[in-house]
Simulated assay, not measured.
Amino acid sequence: MRGAIAFTAGGEERTIRFSTNAMCRYQDMSGETLMQAVGALQKTPDDMVRQRRLFSAGVAGLSEEEAGDIMDELGLMEAADLIGRAFDAAFPAPEPVTADAAGNGKGKPAKSGGAKAS
């Protein structure tokens, strides 16, 4: 799955992923968007309620209580790292545009699909 970060907890292989459905789950649970949550966590990184909700939303099928138990098993630093990695995977930095892709005139000209005029 694109953007999924694998981890093991409770003897099970799991993934955390901030898909469209996960972002909607988070917003339904919290009343704020995923981007608002990330901004708020930058100001208050010790907001455990928000971190647990993010983890719960990112791992489909977990209640908030189950998410908290898994976070305790993993350790809070590892859980926070998984959230960060999943967020980075969901919103990767755009690829830099090369000079040829930007159309600097050094690339090959586009082929004409039409007939040549005589």
Rank of each mutant, 00 (worst) to 15 (best):
M1K: 11
R2Q: 01
G3W: 05
I5M: 13
T8Y: 10
E13W: 07
R14E: 07
F18V: 01
S19K: 12
T20M: 13
T20E: 11
M23P: 04
M23H: 10
C24Q: 04
Q27P: 02
D28N: 11
D28M: 02
M29I: 01
S30T: 09
S30W: 08
E32Y: 02
M35I: 12
Q36Y: 08
A37Q: 03
A37R: 00
V38M: 15
A40P: 03
K43H: 04
K43M: 05
T44W: 07
D46N: 06
D47Q: 05
D47N: 13
D47G: 03
V49E: 15
Q51L: 14
R53F: 12
R53A: 11
G58L: 03
V59D: 06
S63W: 02
E65K: 05
E65D: 03
E65W: 02
A67R: 00
I70S: 04
D72F: 08
E73Q: 06
E73M: 05
L74M: 03
G75E: 11
G75T: 07
M77V: 15
E78T: 13
A79S: 12
I83A: 09
R85P: 08
A86Q: 00
D88S: 06
D88K: 12
D88Q: 11
A89L: 05
A90T: 07
A90C: 10
A90E: 08
F91M: 12
A93I: 09
E95G: 03
P96Q: 01
V97D: 09
T98C: 04
A99K: 14
D100R: 15
D100F: 01
G103T: 08
P109N: 12
K111N: 11
A115T: 08
A115I: 06
S118M: 13
